[in-house]
């Protein structure tokens, strides 16, 4: 179970793994995630399901190597088995024929929007996809998304690919051209989602963001994934991960995400000392 059947390094700090997990592949819907423990001592980390092949019984996970547990996950090789893989988790994305939809992916969020873009296209939407990274070396999934999108735009902070600037700049441009957007989805770093929400709020275009709060059990028990939405406490693993962007308290989310910054550094140093080939 949970054997890694393919692995690819997408860029300096992002990897893609394809895992044999027929029970998850069969049940997964766009917007859902899994919890992975790459070793028995690791944290339980949530990662979005970036693709599913039901016939092959596999799921695709794309992750950034940012901490101890993702470092351990990246140390696994093809044919290794992942000790613990739980999913699909969370409420699936709500997909229907909205009309014109803008889907925005930033950083590793670019991979996470792929199943959503596919589903939106299949439902008959005009799908305008905007993807953005700091520079061209970090771009992923461009080819895959292009085939599924009516229109694909790229932005990079340094202008090394596509348009120089942020995804939100491109979003503003599309809105300024007079297009009426029936739905906007934004997945990526919290500041990016916040800015996109600010842009669409004044035009009253309903916008959905996929949040990434801290999680432990991720099955509706511990409560660490609580987020404030429209003044109410909601739980990312049950009510989410998708929420109405105009109602989310992003400041609180940003604060909660940095709770363990110091310990995360300690854990990463600890793991780096233990892993072969690391100093």
């Amino acid at each position: 179970m949970n054997k890694i059947i393919a692995k690819e390094q997408l860029n300096a700090n992002t990897s893609k793994i394809i895992i044999n997990a027929p029970h998850i592949a069969r049940a997964a819907r766009p917007g859902q995630f899994v919890v992975i423990m790459p070793t028995e001592k690791a944290e339980r980390i949530p990662l979005t399901i970036a693709d599913v092949d039901q016939a092959a019984g596999t799921i695709t996970i794309i992750f950034q190597i940012v901490g101890a547990t993702t470092k351990l996950l990246d140390s696994l090789k093809v044919n290794d088995e992942i000790p613990h893989l739980l999913g699909p988790l969370g409420t699936p994305s709500h997909v229907e024929k909205f009309g014109t939809v803008v889907v925005i992916g930033g950083g590793v969020g670019i991979a996470e929007i792929y199943p959503l873009v596919k589903a939106l296209k299949k439902a008959g939407n005009e799908v305008i996809t905007i993807i953005g990274t700091r520079n061209k070396d970090l771009l992923i999934y461009e080819r895959e998304l292009r085939t599924q999108s009516t229109e694909l735009s790229i932005t990079t902070d340094d202008g090394s690919s596509g348009q120089k600037g942020f995804v939100s700049d491109k979003l503003k441009e599309i809105i300024a051209s007079g297009k009426k957007l029936n739905r906007v989805f934004a997945v990526g770093p919290v500041p990016m989602m916040k800015v996109c929400a600010d842009v669409t709020r004044e035009h009253n275009f309903k916008t959905i963001v996929s949040l990434n709060p801290l999680m432990l059990d991720a099955t509706g028990m511990c409560g660490v994934c609580r987020v404030t939405v429209a003044g109410q406490v909601k739980f990312g693993c049950v009510d989410g991960p998708e929420f109405d962007a105009h109602e989310v308290d992003f400041t609180e989310l940003i604060n909660r995400l940095k709770i363990y910054k110091t310990q995360e550094k300690t854990a990463l140093d600890h793991v780096c000392r233990l892993l072969p080939g690391n100093k």
Partner: peptide, 23 residues
């Protein structure tokens, strides 16, 4: 919440951090 606090310590053995990676 007590659920989170106890889950970290009892289930994930956070009292052995960083050998156990959950803080």
């Amino acid at each position: 919440s007590a659920n989170e606090f106890l889950f970290r310590v009892n289930m994930m053995k956070a009292y052995l951090f960083p050998d156990q990676l959950t803080p």
